[in-house]
């Protein structure tokens, strides 16, 4: 009977192991507030907020340093054209230019003027309503007051991606250009590059 105790203990251990909860695969819901330029603990290989912030700030500084902007007489009008995404990451393309515009507006102190060309449909509709007398303010509208762009700001996102047994890696190249639509000159070009690599959990390899 002296062996009863170890045998019972072994059974109890097995029963305890078998009864471990498996229903909650998460570690609980915890929210951590972070700065957008901080690398989060769920960081992956893709384009993330910290990249967006770094790239936007860098490009905004670059644009403001361009002679054509810094020494311009009056406020140059800039139109933002959505970036071309050549990476393997599906992204909200407007967010880059929105972030750059915000950074430019914050740092330019009124030296540049942005045109809301991406809202042209709504703007035309409003103008037509005014001209048609359906809403007030038509008397102030001239034939065409929409401004043409002095410069176009756009960019391209490209990547080299690989994935294998040892993990995955992504190199992303962000290039932005300020174009002169009159001459097609590239007035300025800036770039930023980021390489990331990592591995899936062994469970998913």
């Amino acid at each position: 009977m002296k062996h009863c105790l170890p045998v019972t203990a072994a059974f109890a251990l097995l029963v305890w192991l078998g009864c471990q909860s498996i229903n909650d695969p998460t570690d609980g819901v915890r929210v951590t507030q972070m700065r957008p330029d901080e690398r989060g603990f769920v960081a992956g290989l893709g384009i993330e907020s910290q990249d967006l912030v770094v790239v936007a700030e860098k490009m905004a500084r670059g644009v403001l340093g361009v002679e054509h902007i810094a020494n311009a007489k009056g406020k140059p009008n800039i139109v933002l054209v959505p970036v071309i995404n050549k990476t393997r990451f599906n992204i909200d393309k407007d967010i880059f230019l929105t972030r750059i515009r915000v950074a430019l507006n914050a740092n330019a102190r009124g030296r540049v003027n942005f045109l809301a060309r991406n809202r042209i449909d709504a703007l035309e509709q409003e103008r037509n309503l005014k001209l048609g007398g359906q809403v007030t303010g038509g008397e102030k509208v001239q034939a065409n007051e929409f401004k043409g762009a002095d410069y176009i700001l756009t960019g391209t996102l490209e990547s080299i991606s690989s994935r294998g047994k040892t993990g995955a890696s992504d190199y992303i190249l962000y290039t932005f250009q300020l174009l002169d639509p009159r001459t097609s000159d590239i007035i300025w070009e800036g770039f930023h590059e980021i390489k990331k690599q990592g591995k899936d959990d062994v469970t998913y390899q």
């Binding site: 909650d24 695969p25 998460t26 570690d27 769920v42 992956g44 290989l45 893709g46 384009i47 993330e48 393997r88 990451f89 599906n90 995955a168 992504d170 990331k196 990592g198 591995k199 899936d200 959990d201 062994v202 469970t203 998913y204």
Partner: peptide, 10 residues
């Protein structure tokens, strides 16, 4: 997301 690394967690 396309760039996510799959974490096994608990």
């Amino acid at each position: 997301p396309a760039g996510a690394l799959l974490r096994g967690g608990a």
